[in-house]
Design a protein around this nucleic acid. Structure first.
Lengths: 147, 147
DNA sequence: CGCGAAGTGTCAAAAAGTGTCATGAATTGG
DNA sequence: CCAATTCATGACACTTTTTGACACTTCGCG
């Protein structure tokens, strides 16, 4: 049997960071169907990428069987050191993002949360609106998706 | 913040050694989900590597099945020779690192604790920041591993 | 024994992080 | 169109964490 797809991350939201560096995870991405424990990574694109915990956990479990010199182990170690664990608080669903990650992504108060299927992305609003893909029409997007 | 993946060491922290050579283990790496007994090893990379006690125990167990001349056995014997046991004190979570190990890694007051999945590393801050690949991203880390 | 070195335990203050309430905006359902 | 509900967010109280300071213990040595 196959593991069912846990909740997926769809649509796009604009939320804001509070004074302590927390941001509300959209309620669509919380609750029964979604994992509560998340990992935040800096992305090459200048945003943050947020994956459910199970994604990295799988990799780390594998480490036990890898030798100390295995290049694959080195890769997983690299993932571990840049990952930040985060869990939205149960009452209002805010998650905390550390300063070093926020500054990597140039995040100020206004942010955009972008659903990307198995993960979501956090963009600074300015950066996001400056992206060329921003003015994709629904038709263009549909064409790109081949539907 | 709390610790999602059972017993794994994630993210990177800057902490400092006190006058007696103790350093605070990040609270994320203490508590229920993590082992309290640790082993410190000098690494040839010029840092210290800290593993939970069970890791070395597993290695030693492995020795049982190795012949006396097996080079792998020699490696484990070497590990046992250089290991220092350490246990963060329960009140504030500081662990003591012996002078010979601190000087091996060129450790002064300012240190960086680097989560590496099944273990963590302790680097002198100067050395750490001088290393290349400071702004490693998810894509860099994941690429070579084919994730 | 008394001394010093080395290691350990504890306190308290500041900083950092977390929980919760209340408001107002937005959405849903008659 | 109004009432009921849900959601995001500012504000603020509360807790936890890190760290310097210092007292205390242990051990070896003359």
């Amino acid at each position: 049997m196959q593991t069912p797809v846990r909740g997926s991350y769809l649509s796009t939201f604009e939320h804001s960071f509070d004074a302590k560096g927390r941001i509300t995870v959209p309620s669509d991405w919380r609750g029964e169907s979604h994992e509560t424990n998340l990992h935040v990574f800096p992305s090459k694109d200048g945003c943050l990428k947020v994956y459910p915990e199970s994604w990295l956990a799988r990799q780390i479990e594998e480490m036990g069987s890898l030798s100390l010199e295995d290049p694959r182990r080195k890769q997983i170690e690299a993932l571990a050191r840049i990952a930040q664990a985060a869990k939205p608080d149960p009452k209002v669903g805010r998650m905390m993002v550390r300063e070093n990650l926020r500054s990597h992504a140039g995040l100020n108060k206004e942010a955009v949360l972008v659903g990307s299927g198995d993960h979501f992305e956090i963009w600074d609003k300015k950066k996001w609106t400056a992206l060329p893909a921003q003015d994709l029409t629904l038709e263009d997007a549909a064409a790109a998706a081949g539907i």
